[in-house]
Design a protein around this nucleic acid. Sequence first.
DNA 1: CTAGGGTTAG
Length: 605
Amino acid sequence: MKEDLALTVPGDENTPTEKHLAPEFESLLFPPSLSFVASSSSSSSLHEEAETDPREIDPRWRRRRHPNGGQAAGRRRRLRPVQPRLRPRHLLLHQTPLNTFIWNSMIRGLAHGSSPADAVALYNKMLAEGYSPNNYTFPFVLTACANLVDAAATPGLGLAVHGTLLRRGFEDFDPYIQTALVNFYANSGSIDTARHLFDRCRRRDVALWNALIRGYAQSCRFSEAVQVFRRMQDDSDRIRGDEITTLSVVSACAHLGALDLGRWIHSYIGKNQMRLTVNLGTALINMYAKCGEIEAAFSMFDEMPHKDVRTWSVMIGGLAIHGHAREALLLFTEMKTMGVTPDSVTFTGVLSACSHAGLVREGLRILEEMKTIHGVSPTIEHYGCAVDLLGRAGRLEKALELIKGIPMDLDVVLWGNLEMGEMAAKEMLQLDPQNAGALVFLSNAYASVGRWDKVEETRETMKERRIQKPPGSSSVEVGGIVHEFTSGDPSHPEMNQIYAMLDEISRLRSAQEPRHVAGAVSFDMDEEDKEQCLAQHSEKLALAFGLLKTRPGTTVRIIKNLRICEDCHSVMKLASEAFGRTVIVRDRARFHHFRRGSCSCGDYW
DNA sequence: CTAGGGTTAG
């Protein structure tokens, strides 16, 4: 019993462990991989294990888990042996009565782990056992809720936490809780709720702003993310953005293709004497690449003294979307020689480089080497890239063969990438009847060969299944402001001028190619509307607006959410020639640089 | 003794 003193907090000697820790959630505290199984719960058996090497005990445990460090250590010195075979589980169960601090620590540990739901379960247990959560508890458990695999599908857990903290009067208690709340709602797809809470906060520190900015970006509302950043600049609190702010905003610029703003942030970093960290540098490289400035991206990349796997991946992916496949592959090789281990994202970039350039053999070799040499198992995206590569190079048999070899659970999404017409699309629909991509693809395949009856049929199917194609949308940056156009949407205030410009372009066009016929048309319109809808594809509206609003000779940059259609592609070529402009279009898959009537993609995309 | 906000692809 003397020796037990060394292991026990005063007053705790005779307390059975069950009182502190109900058996059903011991498994939460000690997941199998971490758990040290007790050979017996009786203390006598503990002593029988005396042959255990004391070094087995991690000293950090002693320090960490001994609340009365000084006292206990003193007593421990007098007694020997020192906790011979006590393993972490015993330490915790015997020495430490549960209190809010312990609960908090446990919740915190689980919140960032692989199963944040366990953290929430533990929090509920804590309440059920009658322990009071404090101001530390809520950020932990809210972070857990935000980290749930599909936070948007299960917002209930976080809502309940919010309810509890309201009832207990923590709502306006401190900025940590408020930030955690904003972050939770943003992460769960309720960005508007997050905004509402943000607006109600009186003191706003940089983390709170960051949570909101990041939340908008997370919800794909990038221009609002930028707006919030702008408001942060003007706010009377004079909060300076920090590295995290900048990372989020630069990322938003990359998504938006907002080059001017991105450049402004770059100089903001310099002006505020922020250090250009690897992370920031990587974000900027990505931004320049995504805004069409691949040279600027590359020179930044060159100048970075330290690069991590993301830096390399971003640069390789950037080269890929610009169609510079050889350079991307060279960089991939260089990265490996530098001893940087490529990850799954790196391979997405490398494979897409091969795909855009039609490098079939390279691509297949890399897909193979992913597994064999680098030990990265290909995901559906990687297979998708490879199938895409084969499909576009016309190697349909090979593509089918590859698909057949794909592990079963991966193949559902895959068919969308394949230019194999009807067969592939039907196959895809069998796998997933709700797959909008498949139907859109099928219908476009019919449209391209003029089978309008089949297009109609597909359209009916979509109506029946209540599937909608995402609307085409393009944006163009003019004077630092991003203007967004959706297909056929006449709501822009300067629409008359835009239409006039489009008429002008189409006059030029019929002069040049008098017999041009409307070809590929989106499936979801009647045949008589074809001409008009083609004329109103969002990228054409953006082009017209860009030509009107920027100075002659400057570059027009357009970002489109879908792939550019063939008709628009030829209009872009023509406009670049006729107006002496460089037009850069980033579509869903890659960049097209139009100069003097031709495109950098070589019409292969 | 514990706290909130983070960049790549899809």
